[in-house]
Design a binder for these strands. Structure first.
Lengths: 190, 190
DNA sequence: GCTCCGTTGTTGATTTTTCAACAAAGGGCT
DNA sequence: AGCCCTTTGTTGAAAAATCAACAACGGAGC
């Protein structure tokens, strides 16, 4: 509502991201963030408890945006449709700088774990809200999807997106819906 | 001193310049400026009396910077040295967008007149401060320099700087110091 | 002429940001 | 260990920006 809040928050977060791209997270100080954001040091503390809170809040916001973008406005029985999947990969493509930072940073396990934790929570909520097929166990399904998705996404991003989003979606879609059935023993996969 | 002052002023001025590049000055409203600057309308009035004040203050600041850059740290008897002249042209090169806007705007006479007025005042002050050679009349010298300088600069800028700054300086320097003497009748000019 | 609508410039109450100062804690260096 | 310098997190007073509301003005269109 008040413009100043948004401006200051954004300036701080942008500064943080800039610093993340050239320094290790632990070596970044509040002073540097404030200076880079051209904001008084006190202002940083008005918005964030400390630099961990800053990192977490930003990460959470990004994940929320990603999930919102991934599973919005769709029939979404219990698995994403092909079009939402494509939107997701394209979203990742556009925000590559952020996710690349989060995954390739030397202390990436922190971020990876946080990403997985958040994804797990959100996905569990989602599956609960749509009354999952009785044959599938919720927690196992969640874990399966998270591992597959995060693994593939990490691979894709770290390797600088060697295939276009459309190809990734096609492949991922096939694996998700048909498993490896019909793709074994040199069977033709289109 | 207070960061907010600088930030707001700069945001407003930047917004104004952006609008100037696509609209006529008279058709620009305070509302548009505030919106483009992402600043409350009241904030504009905190810094500027009205849009004319905004235009004038910005123009004055630019001219001051230009003059400061043009005749600083030099023996500067009464005419600029070659190096300061070069600095000036290079300064203009870097701030081309601003000066181009000021000179090519459809209502350019306003700006032109203002530029000349300010230049006249500053140049007169300067010539007074250095006790001009008795053989040269102050006001005539001022008018001569202004006309020549502004004319050449306008020509140079409007034609998108067809020659590099160094060439402009060389030519301008020769004309300033030797007049056309020695350059007539096909005499070699290097 | 009249109405409608946007712009203008101003106001006052509220909120955010700034600055300077502080004590406490941490890391590096001798 | 001791010293020095930076960082940290917090505080209170002061300054700036925000928002909403206002009356006045002016132009466009009926």
């Amino acid at each position: 509502m008040d413009r100043r809040i948004q401006k200051s928050r954004q300036a701080i977060i942008d500064a943080f991201m800039r610093l993340m791209s050239e320094k290790e997270f632990e070596s970044i100080t509040i002073n540097q963030i404030a200076e880079e954001a051209n904001v008084n040091r006190g202002t940083v503390y008005l918005h964030f408890k400390d630099k961990y809170d800053l990192r977490d809040q930003h990460l959470e916001a990004q994940i929320n945006q990603l999930l919102h973008n991934c599973m919005s406005e769709d029939n979404m029985v219990h698995l994403p449709s092909k079009t939402t999947l494509l939107r997701t990969f394209e979203y990742l493509e556009q925000h590559a700088s952020f996710y690349s930072l989060m995954l390739t940073s030397k202390g990436n396990t922190v971020f990876r774990n946080q990403v997985e934790t958040m994804l797990r929570q959100k996905l569990t909520e989602h599956l609960d809200s749509i009354n999952l097929d009785g044959k599938l166990n919720r927690d196992i399904t969640v874990q399966f999807l998270i591992s597959a998705a995060v693994g593939v996404l990490e691979w894709w991003i770290i390797r600088s997106m060697p295939y276009p989003a459309s190809v990734m979606v096609e492949q991922f879609w096939n694996l998700l819906n048909q498993g490896i059935e019909g793709h074994q023993h040199g069977a033709i996969s289109d």
